[in-house]
Design a protein around this nucleic acid. Structure first.
Lengths: 167, 167
DNA sequence: GTGATTTACCTGTCCGAACAGGTAATTGCG
DNA sequence: CGCAATTACCTGTTCGGACAGGTAAATCAC
């Protein structure tokens, strides 16, 4: 991948068919790539830092709660936590109250990452904002949230409908 | 995954550390999910439709050119094309001029998808725009492109620097 | 023309994301 | 109490995306 190259000479047809959709796709790709570059220096992969940031704030959490807060998938959560455990950043213990549940908790090594990750997250945000004024940043945030609401309003009834079929 | 649920009661810490970055992440996720739902009806996965749309416009292409236009990765392109070939939507032939190169070309089944995919892409764009006026859509597009430029301006020097180290 | 380099593609590996399906532990209803 | 349903988690598989490394073909330099 190399979005650093200038725009392709011939813009792909999707830029005509759905300019906003295509712009979202492009922005997300390059943003994720930058996040990945910055996170690599901490030995993390994109996504893992969100989990750790939440654990730093709240302490031990059940996987189910992590899934809810991070809007993740149960299978993804299982494996992400397993990898962070293997990397030594997280510890898992069986809950005593509910022996189905697993409590996830940062280790000393995980806590030690906090400063670096937070600085990195700030750097990512600084890059994203660029030269935007505070007012422009607020406006951009409003646009992103508006678009998210638009898409969500369509995606969720659609998802519910699909699930109803499977029932 | 279920971003259809209301916002988690406690917003994750990243929404404070980097509101724009977090908003981009969320928007991209739900947008990609909607695209995936719509594409499934065509028997495609997100990403494959971009490749097909380009082939419909231009006809046979070398993989290298597809990588450039779509901003993809050579390994990803190899496997995406292989899957589309296995699905019967694409045909691969060795170039005569340059026997290293592979020409990718839509089959009849691939061409037959065109209408459905284009309608679906329109639906995706309609959902994304929601009730936005034309002027608001143009404004949103400007914001997305501005953010992309901001991120790109930081990500690319950084990528170049990393590559220089490897040299 | 021969050898080094570049180009085009393939494979292996790892990661996040999503879906399907399975197993224990818990809960709730009769 | 006992059985069904739910919940919490795990595993398998497939996909896109990224990185490292490898092979064959073409190109360039001498």
């Amino acid at each position: 991948m190399d979005p650093c190259r200038a725009e392709p000479a011939a813009a792909p047809p999707c830029s005509d068919a759905g300019p906003l959709s295509y712009a979202i796709f492009r922005l997300a790709r390059v943003h994720r790539m930058l996040a990945g570059q910055l996170l690599r220096r901490c030995g993390l992969h994109p996504g893992q830092e969100l989990l750790l940031m939440h654990l730093w704030e709240t302490g031990a959490q059940r996987q189910t709660d992590l899934i809810t807060v991070l809007g993740s998938d149960s299978a993804t959560m299982t494996r992400t936590v397993q990898r962070l455990e293997r990397a030594g950043f997280v510890r898992r213990t069986r809950s005593e109250q509910d022996r189905r549940a697993v409590l996830v908790e940062p280790t000393a090594a995980g806590l030690a990452l906090r400063d670096r990750v937070e600085r990195m997250w700030e750097e990512l945000e600084r890059a994203t904002c660029g030269e935007l004024t505070a007012a422009e940043q607020a406006g951009a945030l409003g646009v992103l949230e508006r678009l998210e609401r638009n898409v969500t309003d369509v995606a969720c009834p659609l998802a519910a409908e699909e699930q109803a079929i499977g029932t």
